[in-house]
Write a protein that binds this DNA or RNA. Structure first.
Lengths: 122, 122
DNA sequence: TTAGGAGTATGATCAACATCTAAATTTGCG
DNA sequence: CGCAAATTTAGATGTTGATCATACTCCTAA
């Protein structure tokens, strides 16, 4: 297996980061990785938003996040752990991650409110 | 011509915003619109980064920005002016725009430095 | 040493996107 | 009215992206 690619943040175009996080599945996974203190192994994400995801799909998503410089994947024995590179990203693009994640949470809350309102109307 | 679509910010998924700004051409155009106090007509952007862009392509990019809730297009006579909706976006997703634009500028600076260094090596 | 589990690579498929040319639409003006 | 200017739409094309099934590589434990 080829070694995993972990680019330096300066070499990652901002567009690649935005693209990586523009996918709802990836944004959810990434929010999870950042949120957890401990790093996560892949299998943690086999369920995203009540939807089962095949492990190959998952692996692709994680690859995109990794090659956007957002996470680091470390192999420990059989499994590999994914941890956020937010310190590095913050150093180069201050507040970027925090702001996007905040927007993500805002949206989750907004969506929940909408669902509630829709139910009330029925 | 159909009326232009200007969604409410709450109805725009964060992914749509990130996707709209993940394209380098669009990010450049958007940065320009936000940067200018006065709104811009389309023809302003016929040149982006030393590259000529056909009007129709430009129109598409502006449409994506508009439907991501990022800009407002107003027709005045024959032409249409584009202005940033940053106040509205800020209200819903605080700091999002400023942070992304800052990252964009950082990247421009970094790239310039790289080019300079590459030239020095020759 | 080998069976099994974790993750990755490959390749297929379908959808979405970026780009362009050409044609259509809208508006202002003679 | 009828033309010209600014922009949008339509249609075509090549590219990238998302998703999945399958096959593969590594590592570990029995």
């Amino acid at each position: 297996m080829r070694p995993l690619i972990h680019p330096a943040i300066q070499d990652v175009p901002i567009g690649a980061i935005l693209h990586a996080l523009s996918d709802p599945v990836r944004l959810t996974i990434y929010a999870d990785i950042v949120g957890q203190e401990r790093s996560q192994n892949c299998s943690t994400f086999l369920q995203v938003q009540d939807k089962a995801i095949p492990k190959s799909t998952l692996s692709q998503h994680i690859k995109v996040l990794r090659e956007a410089g957002l996470i680091r994947s470390e192999r420990r024995g059989v499994e590999s752990f994914n941890l956020s590179r937010s310190v590095e990203v913050d150093a180069h693009y201050p507040l970027l991650i925090a702001t996007i994640l905040r927007a993500h949470h805002t949206q989750l809350a907004t969506d929940a409110a909408k669902t509630k309102k829709a139910k009330r109307k029925r």
